[in-house]
Amino acid sequence: MRLPGWLAQHLAALRALLVFTVLLGLAYPLALVAVGRVPGLAGRADGSLLTAGGRAVGSALIGQSFTDADGNPVPRYFQSRPSAAGGGYDPTATAASNLGPEDIVDTVATSPGDSARSLLTQVCARSRAVGELDGVDGSRPYCTPDGVGAVLAVFHRDGLTGPVTRVVSVNQTAPATPFLARYQGVPVELAKPGEDYRAAGATIVPVRGDAPAEPAVPADAVTASGSGLDPHISPAYAQIQVARVARERGADPAAVRRLVQEHTTGRSLGFMGEPGVNVLELNLALDEQFPAR
């Protein structure tokens, strides 16, 4: 007996649903699980977990911070790069700061909770902190000695032209000292909370200063990755930390430097990306070879 056309179409659709459910809902996932159990791939399939003392302490694919309960760096460990993912390296909140190179003026509100640091000030503050921690020059172009963006709000007599009548260091507030005493003969003032100098007609002028063109603190030490989860730092950032880590652990700096080299990976396929040092793997190796005193 010939089935009605509408019923034949529904039965064909049902058969297709059953076939694709078996293939894509059962067979394909089970095949991937089986491949993940192949020797040599099982660890990667499980998240490339790293263990210490018989327990998992992290993943080789996701960075983590090495700080104390107050957020201060633990000196005996190599430090990771900054992270904008949640509270830092949160895999459930992977993200970047979304701040761009033109974000150079802090929001200085009357309420501290409403204030926000610009990207420039964040970079300056991080560079200064790294310099102090690792005993290197933390100065950078367009940064003040106290670690904020060196940016002026310059007022002219005729709006955008004419003699300068007023100058404000927009990222410095009392009791700081202006990073420049005078600009074009005009005394430099400190910013006042709640003032919007750009809206008041000022020209925003970043000041380069006399910092070296190639800062001692590398870029990855002061900027977060796009994902906020990058587990690597540059070899340059690792090298400036060697002396501190060796001193804190009572180890030979040359031996610590060899560990850094052992945990440095090259460019992917020999030409993509940059060399990197996996911080968690390196710190685990340090704990094994040079336990904290």
Rank of each mutant, 00 (worst) to 15 (best):
Leu3Ser: 05
Leu3Pro: 15
Gln9Val: 10
Gln9Ser: 12
His10Arg: 15
Leu17Thr: 09
Phe20Lys: 04
Leu24Thr: 02
Leu26His: 01
Tyr28Cys: 00
Leu32Cys: 07
Ala34Met: 11
Gly40Phe: 07
Gly43Ser: 10
Arg44Lys: 12
Gly47Asp: 07
Ser48Val: 01
Leu49Cys: 03
Thr51Phe: 08
Thr51Glu: 11
Gly53Cys: 11
Arg55Glu: 14
Gly58Asn: 07
Ser59Met: 07
Ser59Arg: 14
Gln64Lys: 15
Ser65Ile: 05
Phe66Glu: 06
Ala69Ser: 10
Gly71Phe: 04
Pro73Phe: 12
Arg76Gly: 03
Phe78Val: 11
Ser80Glu: 12
Pro82Asp: 03
Gly87Arg: 14
Asp90Pro: 15
Asp90Val: 13
Thr92Ala: 08
Thr94Tyr: 04
Thr94Val: 05
Ser97Asn: 11
Asn98Lys: 08
Gly100Ser: 06
Pro101Met: 09
Asp103Phe: 14
Asp106Gly: 04
Thr107Ala: 02
Val108Gly: 05
Ala109Cys: 09
Thr110Gln: 10
Pro112Cys: 05
Asp114Arg: 04
Asp114Thr: 12
Ser115His: 06
Ala116Arg: 15
Thr121Phe: 01
Ser127Leu: 06
Ser127Val: 09
Arg128Cys: 00
Arg128Tyr: 01
Glu132Tyr: 12
Glu132Met: 14
Gly138Val: 01
Ser139Glu: 02
Arg140Met: 06
Pro141Leu: 10
Gly149Met: 06
Ala153Arg: 05
Ala153Asn: 02
Val154Leu: 03
His156Asn: 11
Gly162Lys: 05
Ser169Asn: 03
Val170Leu: 00
Ala176Pro: 13
Pro178Arg: 10
Phe179Lys: 08
Leu180Pro: 11
Tyr183Pro: 14
Pro187Asp: 12
Val188Thr: 05
Val188Met: 05
Lys192Phe: 00
Pro193Asp: 07
Pro193Gln: 07
Asp196Thr: 12
Tyr197Asp: 01
Gly201Phe: 10
Thr203Glu: 13
Ile204Phe: 04
Pro212Tyr: 08
Ala213Lys: 15
Ala216Trp: 13
Pro218Cys: 03
Thr223Pro: 03
Ala224Phe: 00
Ala224Thr: 04
Gly226Leu: 13
Asp230Gln: 02
Ile233Tyr: 04
Ile233Pro: 06
Ser234Tyr: 07
Ser234Gly: 09
Gln241Thr: 14
Val242Ile: 15
Arg244Gln: 10
Arg247Gly: 01
Arg247Lys: 13
Ala251Thr: 08
Asp252Gly: 09
Ala254Glu: 12
Val256Gln: 07
Arg258Glu: 15
Glu262His: 02
Thr264His: 07
Thr265Gly: 05
Thr265Cys: 00
Gly266Ala: 03
Gly266Asn: 03
Gly266Pro: 11
Arg267Ile: 03
Ser268Asn: 06
Leu269His: 04
Leu269Met: 02
Gly270Lys: 12
Val279Ala: 03
Val279Cys: 02
Leu284Val: 09
Asp287Ser: 09
Asp287His: 10
Ala292Lys: 15
Ala292Ser: 15
